[in-house]
Amino acid sequence: MPRNLESLSPMPSVSASHEQRIRLLLRQGIIAVQLLVIVTWGLVHVMLAERLSRPGAWVTLATLSGLFLIQTFTVSHRVWRFSGLLFVLAAVSGFRLIFEEYPLLYEHYALPLTVLAVVGASLLIRGPMDYLVVASLTWLLVWPFAGSAHDSARWSYLALFVTFSIGLGWINSRTYLRALQVTLDVEQHYRTLSETDHLTGLLNRRALMERFERFVASHPAGYFMMIDIDDFKRVNDSLGHAAGDQVLCLLARRLKAKAGADYVGRLGGEEFGIILNTQDASRAVAWAESLLQEVRQSRDAPAPFTFSAGLVPFVHGQALSDILIHADRNLYRAKRAGKDRVQLGSPTGLPV
């Protein structure tokens, strides 16, 4: 198991990045449970037909339906969370009103219904503390009706039901949340592996191109730089592939450490790609020249090395293939001009 998963605490917190994913995973199950509660509420009133003429029945039904729609369609995690809490409490409050009107139903069905509600709430409530609050309030809403039970043995059994139902639901909620967290951590771990170049730790070509496509679709303009290590074959041939790998990793570390680039990735071999979120050509060139200078001054490489770069502007919606073709052309212009330099150029019609 990945190291970051082995250190999971017994009570993991749900990271913000996982909240949306958890909602998607739970969506169908929560919808099914809430619809079951609403349908059950309706069936109870079919059997208690005379109650259909009372406002309380329709107020509760409208409240449950409204909370169901809110939790199903909201984009806010906070609203999603609290609408789930309110849905459970609204359902329990509605049944309490029925018990007030029909004491015989309370006597026979209050206890099993409350246990069912407390345990079932663990399917709707995500978060152990939220669950404990809802479960405790559920029992408090029903508890006053136990006042007619003066038998101490009956109180003891009732206390046992309270403890057991809340404990079982809390364990279920806690265990389910932890299982979701571990599942999402494993998913994230393997997604990272699939997107990461194994040698340099940068984004691999596929992952970089995916981000580049989203970037071009969501930004008005920017600059893309394609760089290639100069005379890399000579490093491999004279010093060995291990030395070549050291050079690649050193350049990758420089790219990671240098601020100003939105995304950096290895395109393959000794080629790298950088996405710069700027529309200012002078800033893009200055960034590239600064990186060149840092590489020239490196003292921890197995041999001195430089790189050549092709820098090209792009605009919103431009085809990636077009950007890459022009970046590649500028790169080879830099190679032909003597290497260890940045060549800026643009497709026809685009300002440099």
Rank of each mutant, 00 (worst) to 15 (best):
A327M: 06
D328Q: 05
L320V: 12
V133N: 05
V133E: 08
L26Y: 09
I98Y: 06
W41R: 03
Y223N: 02
I275E: 02
P313E: 10
G84W: 05
T40Y: 10
G42N: 12
S238P: 07
L248T: 00
A221G: 09
L137G: 03
E213M: 12
T60H: 06
L141P: 05
L105D: 11
F161P: 03
P103D: 11
M226K: 02
H77L: 10
V162L: 09
L324E: 11
V142N: 05
K256M: 13
N277G: 11
L160Y: 13
R296W: 12
I275M: 08
G244Y: 01
G56T: 03
L64G: 00
A303S: 15
T183P: 07
P103C: 06
L26Q: 13
R341T: 04
I38Q: 08
R234I: 08
W80V: 00
I98V: 10
R333D: 09
R54P: 04
S346G: 10
A337S: 06
G240P: 07
R254I: 09
L202R: 00
R299T: 08
A159M: 11
Q28A: 14
G273T: 00
G201P: 01
K335D: 11
E294L: 13
E100T: 08
V285L: 14
V162F: 10
V79R: 03
V312G: 02
P112N: 05
L113I: 05
F224C: 07
I171G: 12
L255G: 05
R3Y: 13
A57I: 06
L141Y: 09
L158F: 13
G127F: 06
R283G: 10
A90K: 00
W143Q: 12
S53Y: 13
V118W: 01
A242Q: 15
G349K: 01
L177H: 03
A334H: 04
L105I: 05
G147K: 03
L124P: 01
Y102K: 07
Q297Y: 12
A309P: 03
S321P: 07
L97D: 15
T163G: 13
V264T: 01
F307D: 08
H326Y: 11
L199W: 10
R27H: 13
D328L: 03
L104Q: 15
V37S: 05
K258C: 14
L344Q: 02
A179V: 11
L52G: 04
G349L: 03
R51W: 14
L124Y: 08
V142P: 03
D340N: 11
S298R: 08
Y102N: 10
V88Q: 03
P55V: 03
S122V: 05
A91C: 09
D280G: 06
L177V: 04
S282K: 12
Y176L: 15
A90P: 01
R21I: 06
A135N: 09
V295C: 12
A259I: 04
A259H: 12
I31E: 15
I227K: 01
I325P: 08
T306A: 06
W41Y: 15
S76C: 08
V115P: 00
S7G: 15
A303E: 15
G66Y: 02
Q20Y: 14
L8F: 12
G84E: 11
R23K: 09
Q188I: 00
Y190V: 00
D280V: 05
G169R: 00
L86A: 15
D300Y: 09
R154G: 07
S76D: 10
E187F: 02
R333K: 05
H241I: 01
L160W: 14
E107A: 14
S17F: 11
H77R: 09
Q20F: 13
I275F: 05
S165K: 04
